[in-house]
Nucleic acid binder design. Structure first.
Lengths: 105, 105
DNA sequence: TTGGTTCATCGCAAAATCGCGATATGTACT
DNA sequence: AGTACATATCGCGATTTTGCGATGAACCAA
C-alpha cells in the first residue's frame, strides 16, 4: 500500500483539471484529427495552438496560457517545430493518475 | 463510449481536490479512527469537524470552509447529530471518479 | 529586406480563492 | 436563565487566478 516515490504531484494536476476549458481541451486532444482533418501535421506531430485556440474560442494569449498550465502539470507535451508548437496528451501522466487516484484520495 | 447523463460534474471535484489541505483531509478520512481512537462516535457517525481542524492545523472557520468545499463537490457527506457535524468520505463519488476519469479526460 | 504567421511573455484589471477573526446559531448541561 | 461547547456564516484583507491586448521572438516566404 505504499505510494511510489515518483508519484505525481497531484495538486497541480487537479488544479489544472479544475477549469472547464482546460478539461475540455484535454478531452478534445483524444482525437487530434478532429481539429483539422486535412492537416497531416496534426497526425504526425500533434495539434498546434491555433487549432486549440479556435476550438476553445479564447484569445491567442489565453490559449497559450491554458496550455502552459496543462504542460506544467505534465498533462500534455509540447513539440516545437518551425513556427508551430504541437501539443499532445501525456498519456503516461493520465494513466498514472488513474492508477494512483485511489491510493491518494 | 457515451458519458452517463448523471455523470459527475468534474470541474468542482477537481477544484476541490486541487488544494493540498483538502486533498490531505480526504486521505485522512480513509481511516476515521486515526483522528481519535478513543472516541466511539467516530466509528459510528464519522469524524467531527473539531478533529479535522486540529489535524489540519487551521482555524475553525477555515476547517468549516474546507469541508464545505468538499461537500459541494460531493466528495464527503455530513451528518448533523447534536452539536456535531460528522464527516465521511463519499465513496460513491470517489469510485465513480475513478471509473469515468478516462472517459472524460 | 519586408511582411506575414505562429507562438510566448509581459502588464494589467477583474474576478475568484484563501484564511482569519468576529459573530450567529444551535445544542447540552447546570 | 446562564454558561460552555461545536459549528456555520459573515466580513475583510491578502493572494492567486483569469483573460485580454500589446509586445517581442522566431520562423518562413516573397
Amino acid at each position: 500500500m505504499e505510494i511510489a516515490a515518483d508519484a505525481l504531484d497531484l495538486v497541480p494536476v487537479f488544479k489544472a483539471l479544475g477549469h472547464p476549458t482546460r478539461l475540455a481541451i484535454l478531452g478534445w486532444l483524444k482525437d487530434p484529427e478532429s481539429f483539422a482533418p486535412e492537416d497531416s501535421a496534426t497526425r504526425e506531430h500533434g495539434v498546434c495552438l491555433k487549432y486549440i485556440q479556435a476550438r476553445a474560442e479564447v484569445s491567442q494569449s489565453t490559449a497559450s496560457q491554458l496550455m502552459s498550465s496543462l504542460q506544467r502539470a505534465n498533462l500534455v507535451t509540447v513539440t516545437r517545430a518551425g513556427q508551430w508548437s504541437y501539443y499532445r496528451r501525456n498519456e503516461d501522466t493520465i494513466a498514472k493518475l488513474g492508477q494512483i487516484l485511489y491510493d491518494v484520495i
